[in-house]
Design a protein around this nucleic acid. Structure first.
Lengths: 414, 414
DNA sequence: CTCATTTTTTCGAGCCTCGAAAAAAAGAAT
DNA sequence: ATTCTTTTTTTCGAGGCTCGAAAAAATGAG
């Protein structure tokens, strides 16, 4: 049972709505905010005045060179970059990077280094993340939140990394450790989910209420947005598309099961097949991008084994997408990551197999878009997730709750 | 962008919340409503007074023999059965039934008859539904809404039957025809989705935020509730679990594709396999329940072909559920329909195959519950869907909107 | 018959949003 | 240069809603 709406709740929601409108439009005027939120000008005026006085928003020069028109010029409103700072951590195979981001989403500082994730103990891994946050925040004042993007599965509450290919340890409690150390809320996210978040911010006209983001890389990841909501499981970050079964008793997957889509379409699987290894051979830990490029080129040049490896990858992906689309209606697909450099080889075959499934009824109407570098997307998604959490939890509270440092309440100031 | 909350919107929502609380609890007191909604006693008192004055609710003798306690006795509140009536239509293979239901959900009148759905023209089919509504409402005053439950796929707006095995016609516009004839809102639903709705009302302690309802019958249907929301596609009623692909190039499915789960686990598939027919033989239209019972008994008695048919059905279901659970986290499963009479044969095998998939990690923790008769569930789900729509759209409007006949507004009365 | 207890209603205070009108800020017209 | 137009933003009073506290109601216990 959802809880009833009380009076302060109403203000809270409308504040949140105004903040969201400011983030979505680029420096909108009050009039524009009133239009998109459906609230009256007077209400927007009041809320905007509050937000500005509290240091959350500020008036700014108008965005896209507004053609000088008759009448009182619009006053653009933008988030105040100094209202808050958050840290985004990106943890992936042999690599950890941290970015300090201002309240507008612009990076302030950046720090990344390589580390042998597979070899680290649980404590060393957590210690490294703590250290990365320390380094990137050094000399930049307090932060209000930390977001962590991980390869692998997070729990739905965003506190732990339940499983990840980058480490032998399960249930790594990154959230609690960072929360205790830095005394700010921390959430751990699956990287593919964050890619979907980023696509939503970058291309809302294409990626809005229903779409699929697929990460083709060493493994296969998926972020799914349904009905405008990021899709998550009850316990885990969910959406393990790569571990749907393609063929019972198929090749060995990194997860230990057999016949997963990833065991056909992950880099290691394509590499294993193209090199004529046994399908039951244990997946190698990592493969250089250049090596995958070479395989793709071999396939383009007609190398039979390489062609077959990519064909089988496409078959698994095609049937997998078909099965997904049997459950949800077909939706725009974004394909992201290193694997997209061979997408010219994959796409026609994917479409061919997709057309053979019930979900692929109108396979030719299904559209793919590829983007090879996933890292900026993950970072962007992580930042926006952290910032919108701030928007909701810190900057749109019921008014009698305490506000964070740097955001004095109207009454406190007057 | 969600729209802002205005003042009348607040009242509307809180009214809706109170009505929902009354439906969910059995004849709650005002105090109970205040507790579950989180609203104050004064607010509940005011809203309840409005609802009673408008004829939507009424005070009723307390529900479950409240032990006589000290203090002022609670006054139970219940929906006024006379506030509205709705019609539920159940359209399935060779059968059409209509139920007239009061605002409490109790059936007032019922009418059903057999008709050769496969042979009917589009117009005859629609005409039959109109006639069924006429018959069941005759002499009972006006209705406020019609819900239609169909085997097959509805569009997400609930206006059309996009595809159904019971008729050769696609895109049958049941909604518009009935809406025009009876001048009330009409929604068309997939039957499996309604089963899920009914389970939610009947067993909220087990079926609430995340669960799967599987309909095992001539075909395979699925209703999926995720995060408390009925799962639907963007265009269709969605969740075509039965048409996920089990084996590329597998047996011929009723949908025309090959290797769908249904082509292994639907009654027609089990029958085809057990009778040694070719996997590519066109599925028969219908199979008598007694014949399926006989097959199940043969399998129990050790008949090899029958055993194998059920084993293959279980394999397809097991892998299919595993794939589903790779996407969503495992959730309680309700298995409904004629096919459950053989569930003793299926369940152990389903678990065995499920355990071989990534989604079946903890296969032994996944629980099944079977219920053989789906019709009462579909009817119940259809009724509750229609009634809760009324609750929201008619009985919790912004106050300056018109109210339907039979529910005079406070001002009109005073 | 009075007291204790629990539920329900009443009442005034405090917020919030809204519409209308006023104020502000520019370009256009004279 | 000054006045008109147009558009945006702010101000202000009205109305509606929820809340907490207190009162009223209804019953069992003593």
């Amino acid at each position: 049972m959802t809880v009833g709406i009380r009076h302060d709740e109403m203000r809270k929601r409308n504040r949140a709505m105004v903040i969201a409108a400011v983030r979505q439009a680029d420096r909108p005027s009050r009039t524009h905010i009133a239009r998109v939120t459906g609230l009256s000008h007077s209400t927007i005026s009041a809320i905007a005045a509050d937000l500005i006085e509290e240091g959350i928003m500020r008036e700014a020069p108008p965005g896209e060179a507004a053609a000088p028109r008759r009448g009182r010029p619009q006053i653009a409103i933008a988030p105040d970059p100094n209202a808050a700072r958050v840290v985004c951590l990106l943890l992936s195979f042999n690599s950890l990077s941290a970015v300090l981001v201002d309240y507008c989403g612009a990076p302030i500082a950046r720090h990344s280094h390589r580390l042998p994730t597979l070899a680290l103990s649980r404590e060393e891994l957590m210690g490294a993340t703590v250290e990365a946050v320390r380094k990137v925040t050094a000399g930049h004042g307090p932060i209000l939140r930390i977001g962590v993007a991980v390869q692998g599965i997070a729990d739905s509450a965003g506190k732990e990394m339940l499983w990840s290919p980058i480490t032998p340890h399960a249930n790594v409690s990154l959230g609690p450790v960072l929360e205790e150390t830095f005394a700010v809320p921390v959430t751990v996210h699956n990287d593919s989910n964050l890619i979907a978040v980023a696509l939503r911010w970058r291309r809302p006209e294409r990626y809005r209420d229903n779409f699929v983001a697929i990460l083709l890389s060493h493994g296969i990841g998926m972020g799914l947005v349904l009905d405008g909501h990021m899709f998550k499981g009850e316990h885990s970050s969910g959406g393990e598309f790569g571990h749907m079964n393609h063929r019972p008793d198929g090749p060995l997957c990194r997860c230990g099961k057999r016949g997963c889509i990833e065991a056909y379409a992950g880099n290691y699987a394509i590499w294993r097949r193209a090199h004529g290894k046994s399908p039951m051979e244990k997946p190698v830990a990592d493969i250089d991008a250049s090596e995958m490029e070479a395989l793709a080129n071999a396939a383009r040049d007609g190398d039979a084994r390489a062609r077959e490896a990519f064909r089988e990858a496409a078959e698994a992906l095609g049937y997998g997408l078909g099965n997904l689309f049997a459950l949800i209606d077909p939706a725009p697909i974004a394909v992201v990551g290193q694997g997209t450099t061979a997408f010219d080889l994959l796409e026609p075959e994917i479409r061919r197999y997709l057309a053979q499934t019930a979900g692929g009824q109108h396979a030719d109407a299904i559209s793919f878009e590829a983007e090879s570098n996933e890292v900026p997307l993950i970072e962007h998604g992580c930042a926006m997730t952290a910032l919108t959490s701030l928007d909701r939890e810190y900057f749109a509270p019921a008014l009698h709750l305490a506000l964070p440092v740097g955001a004095p309440r109207r009454e406190d100031v007057a």
